[in-house]
Design a protein around this nucleic acid. Structure first.
Lengths: 217, 217
DNA sequence: AGGTGTGAACACTTTCACAGCA
DNA sequence: TGCTGTGAAAGTGTTCACACCT
């Protein structure tokens, strides 16, 4: 039955991350005018194996042609569909510190379907200022504005001590997705999805690996 | 010779990430003056299970006391040792754009043992300027300076198109660890460890999860 | 009693290897 | 022939359950 749409299997986190990587590589190939690509070549660009690429793609359907490979543009389009990038998302950013400001001013999110529609801070001296063309609002107004602006995803770039109070507001607003830069495991109700970006954790994984290596040979 | 040092078992990436999280939670407990903590409580703060916590810790030794739990300060100290945080690391940052500047100016790395000792860019108009008290050097000087300054880890906050030329220099300098914000899989020689921080990938994993949910119920 | 440390069972992910289609 | 799609095998990571120590 052509139930192409709703996926019943459980898709792993890592498979999704790889899809995201494949997509970026496909988009580069597309720019170069390439028509088809093999799982072998895709694996080289993604640091994985050809079998892994085929398995990942086969979770969502049969996109390739045997003997030929995958059609570049079509596959890219399919992956965009899978990742929910065939639509636009409305984001709010809370915490206009160094990282928060850098993110708003970066402006590259829009190109990938993510529109930052409102930004917030609790610091009165920042409220009313602008970043990347948006006016900083007070975080006390978050629930109202989030509703008005139909915010679906929140980017949290706030320090540890701000987490409890800010999270009360975020939960109150019924936001379903959070991209968190806060250095802690957020507590959220069922149904809310959190992804963490944690530089310190990555650095620590790095120093662990380097320390290990020193011990050897 | 307590064979405490070199670990023979294979330690998973995820176990290390959890250790990093445990450490942060332990340091918070320490501030609150807590003496001991159970795997049960640690699991609550880390979003995992008590068994997982015990397994993770047991990979490196027996730090707890049956019937009592783990001594907070001592365990924190042990984890710091495991993660290679009982020493200082010398970092260089390449790419003083928005993200790069935010990272240097953040200044919080020093507190955790990571000293940024030099910063680089290829943009002549930025070279000679300062960020967080450091003078921006030209990336052409990277190899020389990295040697002089004994750089062990590089933070790469550069755009895609700069990757090939910058990576030539980084490889040439014999750096062993890279924390990359570049939106691609870096190609490095054996023995060089790379950790990626990729916000777009996390956002895409988020929109995938949210899209899935919409299909349901 | 209370809570760790850990082998054994289970669950999930990746790799292999090959049938089958263009 | 060339390369996909996929069951089956191998490998990894997580959970269970309980012996054992304080």
């Amino acid at each position: 039955m052509g139930s192409d749409v709703s996926i019943s299997k459980k898709i792993s986190e890592s498979a999704i991350r790889r899809l995201s990587l494949y997509l970026r590589n496909l988009e580069n190939l597309e720019k170069g005018g390439r028509e088809t690509v093999s799982s072998e070549e895709m694996s080289g660009q993604s640091g994985t194996t050809a079998a892994q690429v085929r398995k990942d793609l086969s979770l969502f359907g049969s996109f390739g042609k045997r003997g030929l490979g995958y059609p570049v543009s079509e596959l890219a389009e399919r992956i965009r569909g899978i990742l929910g990038l065939d639509r636009r998302w409305r984001l709010a950013l809370i915490g206009v510190g160094r990282i928060g400001s850098a993110l708003v001013e970066y402006g590259g999110f829009g190109r990938r379907g993510y529109d930052i529609v409102a930004i917030f801070d609790s610091d009165e001296s920042k409220v009313g200022g602008t970043r990347g063309g948006l006016t900083v609002r007070h975080v006390d107004d978050f629930e109202v504005v989030a509703e008005e602006e139909n915010v679906q995803i929140v980017i949290l770039s706030i320090p540890l001590e701000a987490v409890p109070s800010v999270m009360d507001r975020v939960r109150g607003a019924g936001v379903r997705g959070i991209l968190s830069f806060a250095p802690t495991k957020l507590k959220v109700p069922d149904g809310v999805v959190v992804k963490d970006v944690n530089m310190v954790m990555e650095l620590e994984a790095l120093s662990f690996a380097l320390s290990q290596r020193e011990g050897e040979a």
